[in-house]
Every structure is written in C-alpha cells, then in structure tokens.
Amino acid sequence: MPLLEVRDLGVRYGSVAAVRGVSFTCDAGEIVTLVGPNGAGKTSILNAVAGALESARLTGDVRFDDVPILGDAPERIVHRGISLVPEGRRIFTTLTVGENLRLGATPHGGSAEDMVSVLERFPILAEFRRRPAGLLSGGQQQQLALARALLARPRVLLLDEPSLGLAPQVVGDLFRAIADLRDEGIGIVLVEQHARRAMKLASRCHVMGHGTFVQGLEGSDVAEVVGAYFGGDALP
C-alpha cells in the first residue's frame, strides 16, 4: 500500500475545473515529479493534498497511510506527516530566521534534537538565526523553507517550484539536498519547471496539461525521455 495515494482528484474554482481525474501515488524514499506548463494545475494538486485550498471544491480521494485526508484542516495534515513547501518559499520576512524555524515545530517534531539536525544540514541558518528572514538570499530562503518544513518530521514533502528564481549553481545544490532527503526515506512530490533536473531525480514523472495527466513515465522510461529530449549527460 503506497504511503500517499491520490485517486481521481478534481479541483474546481467556481465553474472552472483546474484539475480533473488526477491519480498518482508516492512511497517513502521516492520522488514523484509533476511537470507541465503554467496553469496546468500542478500547484492546485499540491495545495489540495496539503489542505491549503479553502475556496475550491474538491472531489476524489486522497489517502495517507490508507487514511482519507482530502478536505482535512491543513494543521491535521501536517500533524499526520505531510508538509508543503509552497511556491515562492513563503517565509515570514519580518520574523527572524530562528523564529521562522520555531514555527516549523509541531507536537510531533521540532524538538531540540530536530533543530540541531536541521541546522547541521543547513549550517548557514544557524549563523543567521537572529537576522530577519527577509534579508536572506533566495537560496538561503529556500533552505529556510525546507528546514522549517523538515522540523515537522514529515514522511511526505510536497515541494512547489523550489528552484523558482534561483541562480543555476544554487539550483544544483538544492536538487542535491532534495536527493539526500529522498535517500533518508522521505517521499517527495516535486512540482518543477526545471523539467530536465526534476525528471532525472524522479522514479516517476507525470506530465500535465489542462488540469489532467497527459503522460505518465516510470523507472527506465523517465531516463529514456530525459535522454531523448535533453541529451544523455543531462545532469551532473
């Protein structure tokens, strides 16, 4: 039984159907990517899974550990073990780095050991913990957003365009960090416009268009498509 199972998900904003009949799964220690053009419905899917869509009408079924979670309050979903790192990082710019991290703590995560572990992973955050988070660079803010989400000890991470607005070198480092998290057993659903990098990391990839999946790739197919479209040495 998969850790996260999305079955026939639909998202409607009034009369507009943003997502139709989307199904996919994500297991521990794997990366599933959703790629596609702007407006395809990728962010709506992540927000629907995370419970962050208040005004939309949701249909279908989302199960985490075989428990239905679609429509649950976002805090309940976080406490179950799903954390969303939203598009644009959404860190609290007027609060300090330390305060942002404190906000990541939940009843199940955020102990002193968790904090030490996260700061070891992202040492720059320890150095800048007293600074307003708005003064960090884009890459550092992304680290903060990831660190904050990790403090809740998620079993599944939903990452929405984590590389948006970052310099190429920083994007490489970020994707290595994402691969590390996967290797530690966290399931990751990755929405990314850097399709080549995202597909290279993924064990499964879903290509979206107009609110639905138009193509699904698994295992060696992903590598084949990456090779065919982007060249064999696509990624370092």
Binding site: E120, F128, G139, V170
Partner: peptide, 13 residues
C-alpha cells in the same frame, strides 16, 4: 545573504 548566487552549503545527510 544578499546576493542570489550564493551557493547552498548542504551537508550530505
């Protein structure tokens, strides 16, 4: 931290 090109210093987990 003010320049966007700063490398992310990540320790392998």
């Amino acid at each position: 931290g003010l320049v966007d090109g700063d490398p992310i210093s990540v320790k392998a987990g």
